[in-house]
Design a protein around this nucleic acid. Structure first.
Lengths: 68, 68
DNA sequence: CACATTTATACCCTATCGGGTATAATTGAG
DNA sequence: CTCAATTATACCCGATAGGGTATAAATGTG
């Protein structure tokens, strides 16, 4: 499955936004967005959702069956 | 879509575990597990994944299309 | 290549998450 | 109903996430 970080990075490119653009629009810090795109595991869910909201997405449970 | 908290609660019942059982097995605090099941938004992803791992699941991106 | 833009890495500081614990409320088995 | 087990709520405190900032590296456009 595509990682959360990759999802954000791809969507961001798709909309031709810089990390700074997206961080401002999503209301999170630039550093946070970078850590998100680079796959940091210990991020807070609410902040991640703030970013995903920009692309009509959110965090949810993905089961192993979903992967097949 | 089922919330993350509800997913955990249902799976936990399904395996007949108490919150304490699950928190011990997953290696998270009891209080954390309670906050997770009650829908707290600001939890850390890594801890949430520690719990979801117990049921072969993990956090992932869910798009609005997935919802339809 | 040169130069501007974007991205990556590191530092300090505050806010708060998460653990542990105690107590209260709820649930359910007998 | 009674009583034990489970769950919910509240407190204190250490660890760390996240913001801001500065600097370095990488990217890409002419």
């Amino acid at each position: 499955m595509e990682t959360i970080g990759d999802f954000v990075k791809h969507k961001r490119k798709q909309y031709a936004l810089t990390q700074e653009d997206l961080s401002l629009k999503a209301g999170v810090g630039l550093r946070f967005l970078r850590e998100l795109e680079s796959g940091k595991k210990t991020l807070r869910m609410d902040k991640v959702n703030d970013v995903l909201d920009m692309f009509g997405a959110q965090l949810g449970v993905v089961t192993e069956e979903d992967e097949l």
